[in-house]
């Protein structure tokens, strides 16, 4: 019985055989942790508004503080543990954006402060800025034309 898999059959077989991600468990964790991080953001925003910051300035200040926390907990070597547990729950919030900046910068520190820290900082976050800004320029032009 010298039956051999073709490539297609093999891919299908492997797909069936491979252990699956526990999607329900992962989504629940992502929901809870992501939601909690947003509650922290809401709390900070409420707090600074109650201290007399204008609501329109509060958004920027809130993200600034959240980014600091994301960066700081990455430095303390705990953000990755959170990420291992929460997945997208800690990737999608702005703290995850800070994590994506700090983690490569830390990793490549031994390659120097310019080509290491300075350049590697953006290996993950760079594309976010590139696509975010480009999309906003497109959107601005469309908005201008349709206005």
């Amino acid at each position: 019985m010298q039956k051999m898999y073709t490539k297609q059959e093999y891919l299908k077989y492997v797909e069936e055989k491979s252990p699956k991600s526990k999607v329900l468990r992962n989504v629940t964790r992502a929901f809870v942790i992501g939601g909690l991080i947003c509650i922290v953001g809401q709390f900070i925003s409420n707090l600074i508004i109650s201290k007399g910051v204008k609501p329109e300035d509060a958004a920027g200040l809130t993200s600034l503080i959240m980014i600091f926390f994301g960066a700081f907990f990455t430095g303390l070597n705990v953000y990755d543990e959170l990420g291992r547990f929460a997945g997208a729950g800690s990737i999608v919030p702005i703290t995850g954006f800070a994590n994506s900046i700090v983690s490569p910068a830390m990793e490549y520190k031994r390659e120097g402060f310019v080509v290491g820290v300075g350049a590697r900082m953006f290996i993950i976050a760079g594309p976010v800025i590139v696509y975010g800004i480009s999309a906003s320029v497109f959107a601005g032009i469309l908005y201008f034309l349709l206005k």
Binding site: S21, D80, G83, R84, G87, M106
Partner: peptide, 13 residues
């Protein structure tokens, strides 16, 4: 793969 401190999950495989 990724920097050690990046908060990502490894798939089960």
């Amino acid at each position: 793969r990724y920097p050690l401190e990046l908060g990502s999950q490894r798939p089960p495989t």
